[in-house]
């Protein structure tokens, strides 16, 4: 069964008909040709399909596109300002925060969303004082990014990149 939806993706508005079973991930990749978000597991277990959805980091593989009619999606490729990379993207380059690069767009969006959560004072599982301003230690970064797996094991670079992005 089809439904007509409207999505803004990386600043461009699209109106499209989707089968109600189509996930946001498949709508982006297969229907709109936006391949920045990657399909890793398709079951919510790896984070490679992460985008910023209405400003927050969000998986797209467990989201039905029809349920997100009217939403604004920013993928990793929509983060750059023309030729100028987003500071998080630059930090991944500076610190080799990847090897094959498959998980990277999801990692980058996740870091952008995570840093915003920290700015808003959100605690994490490893935060000692739930009511204090979070202090973004390495343990905090690891915990907050645990929803993004990297099968190449580029975690050291991702950690260093996140540290740089957090302080820049």
């Amino acid at each position: 069964m089809d439904a007509s939806i409207r999505l803004t993706v990386d600043g461009t508005e699209h109106v499209l008909d989707v089968d109600t079973r189509t996930t946001l991930l498949d709508a982006l990749r297969e229907r709109l040709g936006v391949t920045s978000a990657k399909k890793g597991c398709d079951h919510g277990q790896c984070g490679s399909c992460t985008v910023l959805l209405d400003g927050r980091r969000h998986l797209t593989c467990l989201a039905l596109a029809v349920a997100y009619d009217g939403s604004e999606v920013v993928t990793a490729s929509g983060l750059a300002d023309g030729e100028d990379l987003h500071p998080v993207q630059q930090a991944f380059l500076d610190h080799d925060g990847y090897q094959c690069g498959y998980c990277t767009p999801g990692q980058v969006c996740s870091v952008v969303g995570m840093l915003d959560e920290v700015k808003q004072g959100h605690a994490s599982h490893v935060t000692e004082d739930l009511e204090a301003e979070p202090d973004l230690t390495d343990d905090e970064i690891r915990e907050r990014l645990s929803g993004n797996l990297c099968r190449c094991g580029a975690y050291r670079g991702i950690l260093a990149a996140t540290r740089q992005a957090a302080t820049s």
Partner: peptide
């Protein structure tokens, strides 16, 4: 309650 929620799933999934 906060601790149980923060121990669950991932940052992305908790938004959803």
């Amino acid at each position: 309650l906060a601790r149980a929620l923060l121990a669950g799933a991932s940052g992305q999934i908790r938004h959803q």
